Measured scan of single mutants.
Amino acid sequence: EINVTSHGEEQAKHWIELAKRMNLDVEVEIHGDKIIITIK
């Protein structure tokens, strides 16, 4: 399980695309200006 804290939408999209390509599950939480991505 990987937790990524992203401070930008572009960076977040990059991680989500990467996870989808690798067929991994992704959870995205938004806390103000921080985007927390959990890849399982």
Rank of each mutant, 00 (worst) to 15 (best):
E17D: 04
Q11T: 11
L24Q: 01
V28G: 00
I37Q: 00
E9T: 13
H14Q: 09
T5Q: 06
G32K: 06
I37A: 01
I35E: 00
T5R: 02
I36M: 02
I30C: 12
D25N: 08
I16Q: 03
L24K: 01
E17A: 09
G32R: 08
E27I: 12
N23Q: 05
E29I: 11
V28M: 03
D25C: 15
G32T: 04
L18K: 05
I39K: 00
K20F: 15
H31L: 09
N23T: 13
I30Q: 02
T38Y: 08
L18E: 08
G8N: 11
L24N: 01
R21G: 08
K13G: 06
V26W: 06
I36G: 01
G8A: 09
Q11W: 14
M22I: 04
H31A: 04
N3K: 13
K34A: 07
N23S: 08
E10T: 08
K13H: 06
T5N: 10
E9D: 12
A19E: 12
E1L: 11
A19I: 13
I35L: 03
N3G: 06
D25R: 14
I30M: 02
I30D: 01
K20L: 14
V26C: 03
I36L: 04
T5P: 08
E9W: 15
H7F: 13
T38Q: 02
H31S: 04
W15E: 05
I39L: 06
D33Y: 08
I35M: 02
H7T: 08
I16L: 08
T5F: 08
V4Y: 04
D25K: 14
I36Q: 02
I2M: 04
N3Y: 10
L18T: 05
E29V: 09
D33F: 14
E9C: 15
E9R: 06
I36W: 02
S6M: 12
S6N: 09
T38W: 10
D33V: 14
V26M: 02
N23H: 08
S6C: 15
H7D: 07
I37K: 00
E17V: 13
L18V: 06
I36H: 02
A19R: 04
A12Y: 13
D25T: 15
W15N: 06
S6G: 05
Q11M: 09
E27Y: 13
E17C: 14
E27L: 11
I30N: 01
Q11D: 09
N3S: 09
T5E: 07
A19G: 06
W15A: 03
M22R: 01
I16D: 04
E1H: 10
K40A: 03
K40Y: 10
N23I: 15
D25P: 06
K20C: 15
W15S: 07
W15Q: 10
E27R: 13
V26F: 10
I16E: 04
K40H: 03
Q11H: 05
H7L: 10
I30E: 01
N3E: 09
Q11A: 11
D25S: 14
T38V: 05
I2Y: 06
K34G: 04
H31F: 09
I16Y: 06
W15H: 05
K40Q: 02
N23D: 05
V28W: 03
G32M: 09
I30S: 01
H31T: 11
S6A: 14
H31W: 11
K40T: 08
R21Y: 15
T38F: 05
W15K: 05
A12M: 12
H7Q: 04
K34C: 15
G8V: 13
I37N: 00
S6L: 14
I2E: 03
E9G: 06
G8S: 12
E27F: 10
I39Y: 01
E29A: 09
I16F: 08
G32W: 14
Q11G: 06
N23Y: 14
I2A: 10
R21H: 14
I37T: 00
S6I: 15
I30G: 01
M22F: 14
D33C: 13
H31R: 10
E17I: 12
G8L: 15
A19H: 10
Q11K: 11
H31I: 14
V26H: 01
R21D: 15
I39N: 00
N3I: 14
E1V: 11
V4E: 08
N23V: 15
